[in-house]
Write a protein that binds this DNA or RNA. Structure first.
Length: 563
RNA sequence: UGGGGCGUCGCCAAGCGGUAAGGCACUGGGUUUUGAUCCCAGCAUGCGUAGGUUCGAAUCCUGCCGCCCCAGCCA
């Protein structure tokens, strides 16, 4: 990475200061700790790039992948698989450091026993409702549980019997004995273990019927893995005193530092797991990998590249401020990457026939065109030219709407990209008055040369009708029509802000022949249209539009309409 | 009204007491067989606000205002 573009943020500064001070023996160890209860999304990508990015950039630093799987009610093995696939796809590798919090269940149990022995934890028989009542409120202190003074021996016995499955769900918990009057609610004797019997955990099966809570599990898992910097989002700031309390009380050999940063908010999207699940379950989208989803799997299927996502993460930075990032920011990263790397091809989305009356019926020419206008090393492709062609309906208007219009008009000339200049001599209509064909003539002197004595401003794309291949093309737009669908000022539900035009399917697009062999996931630029990639998983030839090209003309038109 | 955070250009974000980086967006201009790309130029006398400290403040101090998070046996 060139020095002038070196990533920096307040977390990296802390890490650099720690390295300079010789803390943690100079080691840097981070972790990415998803709960396997859904698919990873763009917000996770920010955290992945932060944690794994740090591991990449500091000598000897590592980043673990750890599944925070302490709640079997919500978790599934399917998600464990998907998450690993997505992190790998983003280009990161955890080597042999794949962990599960559930790997530590026995050790965590022993830590809990230790807490009991120290008089720092007790078995509580309060029901969930009672516990809530005892907790107090934001402004009033809580009351101590009547079970708080149980003897160590009784607590030990009861806790062992909780583990043995003697008590029903919800009947008892193990709680830390801290301070019911703390202004920080997290310290009002928080729950350490709850009972959940008869569940099958995706990793531990039926070995356990008590499960440790996040706060207890996370700090100790970090400690056991020798994590130095435990990065999480802002809502856990209030949990840090508890994170520290467990480690301090248990006098652990090391004490990771928790640092919080703000989560990503992206315009025109939702990222909460509950809402994404709802979109999938209610059939509003096709699945977790629907190209309109903000999931990693959706972005991948859409044709977004790992490089674009990583660049996006770099550009948005890492801070503690609440933020709402414009969609344009992501889109720009996608365009930048694809513009540089996607080979070009021509594809006509809304075909209109052009017949070159002065071009012999049987003749065909194979023209050479660069695969990339700025990168000659990518080579060239050969494209057939013949009497009958397809052009896009949007590239023809019988009469120019204004002086800026530079596409084809009746009686006018236009350049066919990579080929000749043609003139429209006649417009053919069907009985309904619909334009069905253009009769044109071509100027043979304009292949690879400018026309003599006149300027032809417009360039349009085309394909040879005889050689074209037919494909389905799916045009995607944002899923929501409101910048903050989950938080609209009028109290409406995010479901009321679904964009009804988020998907347009074009059945009969006409493509350059070479696209028949397109590999799923390989990005192409369809010149003057946008970036596309073949859909993974569809029968036949189906292309997804990743993103349009920047469209200055559309902007001019819009401004003209508003004026 | 308790506790924890955050407020620098439309959006993101540098800045860490020496006189407001950068990206995106936007506006003008140039190149171009993609209205793409690329190139050039412009875009915060101002850092939520009011005071204070200082030769000097976005940076330090105090008050005020605004926004976010917390009362799961979720993470």
């Amino acid at each position: 990475m060139p020095e002038e573009t070196k990533k920096t943020n307040f977390i990296r500064q802390i890490i650099e200061a720690d390295i300079a001070a010789g803390k943690n023996g100079g080691k840097v160890r981070t972790r990415f700790p998803p709960e396997p209860n859904g698919y990873l999304h763009i917000g996770h990508a920010k955290s992945i790039c932060l944690n794994f990015g740090i591991a990449e950039d500091y000598p000897g630093a590592t980043c673990n992948l750890r599944f925070d799987d302490t709640n079997p009610e919500k978790e599934e093995a399917e998600y464990v698989e998907a998450i690993q696939r997505d992190v790998h796809w983003l280009g990161y590798d955890w080597g042999d450091r794949l962990y599960f919090a559930s790997d530590y269940f026995e050790q965590l149990y022993q830590f809990a026993v230790q807490l009991i022995e120290m008089g720092k934890a007790f078995v509580c028989d309060l029901s969930p409702e009672e516990m809530r009542a005892y907790r107090g409120t934001l402004t009033e202190p809580g009351r101590e549980s009547p079970y708080r003074e149980r003897s160590v021996a009784e607590n030990l016995d009861l806790f062992a019997r909780m583990r043995a499955g003697e008590f029903p769900d919800g009947s008892r918990t193990l709680r830390a004995r801290i301070d019911m009057a703390s202004p920080n609610l997290n310290l009002r004797d928080p729950t350490i273990y709850r009972i959940r019997r008869g569940l099958r955990h995706h990793q531990t099966g039926e070995a356990w019927c008590i499960f440790p809570m996040y706060d207890f599990t996370h700090c100790l898992s970090d400690m056991l893995e020798g994590i130095t910097h435990s990065l999480c989002t802002l809502e856990f700031e209030d949990h840090r005193p508890l994170y520290d309390w467990y480690l301090d009380t248990l006098k652990t050999p090391c004490h990771p530092r928790q640092i919080e940063f703000s989560r990503l908010n992206l315009e025109y999207t939702v990222v909460s797991k509950r809402k994404l699940t709802q979109l999938v379950e209610e059939g509003i989208v096709d699945g977790w990998d629907d190209p309109r989803m903000p999931t990693i799997a959706g972005l991948r299927r859409r044709g977004v590249t790992p490089a674009a996502i990583r660049e996006f993460a770099d550009r948005i930075g890492v801070t503690k401020s609440d933020n709402l990032v414009e969609m344009g920011q992501l889109e720009n990263c996608i365009r930048d990457d694809l513009n540089q790397n996607a080979p070009r091809a021509m594809a006509v989305l809304r075909p209109l026939k052009v017949v070159l009356t002065d071009y012999p019926e049987e003749r065909e020419e194979w023209l050479e065109a660069p695969l990339h206008p700025q990168r000659a090393e990518m080579g060239t492709r050969r494209i057939p030219f013949s009497r009958e062609l397809w052009i896009d309906r949007n590239d023809f208007m019988e009469v120019a709407p204004n002086k800026k219009f530079k596409r084809l008009v009746a009686g006018g000339e236009v350049r066919l990209r990579n080929a000749y200049v043609i003139r429209c001599d006649e417009v053919i209509r069907d009985d309904a008055g619909e334009i069905v064909e253009l009769r044109c003539s071509h100027d043979p002197a304009t292949l690879g040369a400018n026309p003599e004595g006149r300027k032809v401003k417009g360039v349009i794309h085309w394909v040879s009708a005889r050689h074209a291949i037919r494909a389905e093309v799916r045009l995607y737009d944002r899923l929501f029509d409101h910048p903050t669908p989950d938080n609209a000022r009028d109290g409406s539900s995010f479901l009321e802000h679904i964009n009804p035009h988020s998907l347009e399917v074009i059945e009969g697009a006409m493509l350059e022949g070479g696209l028949a062999e397109a590999e799923p996931g390989q990005a192409w630029q369809f010149e003057r249209e946008g970036y596309f990639c073949r859909d993974d998983g569809s029968e036949g030839l189906v292309f997804n539009r990743t993103i349009t090209l920047r469209d200055t003309w559309a902007k001019i038109e819009k401004q003209a309409r508003q004026a």
